[in-house]
Structure formats: C-alpha cells, structure tokens
Amino acid sequence: MTDEPLLRVRSVSKFYGNRIGCEDISFDLWPGEVLAVVGESGSGKTTLLNCLSTRLMPTSGSVAYRMRDNAFHDLYRMSEAERRMLMRTDWGFVHQNPADGLRMTVSAGANVGERLMAVGDRHYGRIRAAATDWLGRVEIAEDRIDDQPRAFSGGMRQRLQIARNLVTGPRLVFMDEPTGGLDVSVQARLLDLLRGLVHELGLSAIVVTHDLAVARLLSHRMIVMKDGHVVESGLTDRVLDDPQAPYTQLLVSSILQV
C-alpha cells in the first residue's frame, strides 16, 4: 500500500433543483479498502455513487482519482473519452439489476470478453480463455459460456456481471446494492465470493447498500447518510457496535433479529 489515497472526494454536492441529492461529502478512499455507504431510501446514497463514478455531474465539489501513473486527476476535468476509458478499464460498476450492466442478448462469454475487446484484444482464443477463467472464478459452470444471461438465474446474472467488471483487473469497483433482489442464501454465497475476490485482487470498492449485514461483511469503513448528509463515519465494526449519532443508533437498533 502507498501512503496516498486512491480517491479523494472533497465537498461533493448534488442538487436537483431546490432539492438536495447529497451535500458537502468529503472522504478519502485508500487502496484495498472497501467503503460502505449506508442509509435509508432517499438518503442520497445512489446519487453520491453516481457522482463519484461520473455517471452524474455534481453541482459542486471535486473528485480526484490517482491513476496508474500515481498522479491525481480531477474526474470532472477529464475529457469524456478519458472518463469512458477509465470506466471500462480501471473501474467497474456493478448495478443492482444485472440487466442494466449486462448485454442480455449476447452470450456470457461475450459479456465477459467485451471489455477485453474494447481495450483492443483481437485474439479470439485468448478472449475465450479469459472468459472461461473468469466464469470459473465466479462459480459459473464452463458449459454455460455460450448461453445468454437471459437463461441465467438472478444470482448467476449478478455473478456474471461481477466477472464482466473484473476481467480487465480494475482497481476500483462501484457497487450499487449488489445483493438487492437476491434471496438470502444466494446473497450469502455472493457476499462470500465478493469478499474473496476483493481480498485476492486487492480491490478498492465503494458499496452502496441499505443492508447493514452486507456492510458488516464486506466493508472496512462505512459512512452513514441521512437526507443527503453524512451523519456518521468510521470503521465498520465501530459504527455498528458503538453507534454515536442518534440516527445510526436508530438504524442499528432496527435490524431484525431472528
């Protein structure tokens, strides 16, 4: 690990007219760190994620990303071509609904291989070998490589989406409710897989979730949002075991116990 963060977020605000999406958010993300953003619906989690991943322009503030040359680049000052290049090589984005992140009408192998072809790989055998390898790592049987994601279950689709994002060896992955819409046993497997991959590849990740259990399992650090503001942030275990802000206390105490 270097002594410089990977992503430096300073006073990012996004307003939808007079309404606040998120306001004055600042934090650093370090290499290999998983940050969870939790909060209730409408608290600005997804707005923040979209601002950070340049899918949405913030109203004010800056986000600097340390590129592979170790220089910080302001994401909103980059050209669109550079941003799009970054998004499909050094970054990944895992959508809540796999259909948003996958091409549903091309085979699983092509879904995984698309990023490789986008960065100029022109060798079918190598692309296919990489796709096979990645399907194996996300526990999809090799004989499903030529099936379309339409023929996959929800959990498989989500795992395929993760493989598709990780194939270019990104350093930063954004995840928007990666386990939303999956049943609990599939969720558990997916979390297990994600935790393994993040650890193995040394990924940094920003995970948006409303599920505190997901945050507990995946993340090192978390920020709690309410009404577009950060109400508390800190190490995940500290925040969940000893919540200090009244809203966080409410959130933690409202977890259902079985």
Partner: peptide, 17 residues
C-alpha cells in the same frame, strides 16, 4: 471516441455459435 469493441462482440458471438 473510436469505441469499437462492440463490433468485435458480434464477431465473437459468431465464432462462439
């Protein structure tokens, strides 16, 4: 932006099928 990776996805699908 000269993003033509998608065109090869079509050719990949051809070979796969």
């Amino acid at each position: 932006l000269e993003e033509y990776g998608l065109m090869h996805v079509k050719l990949y699908e051809d070979i796969a099928q």
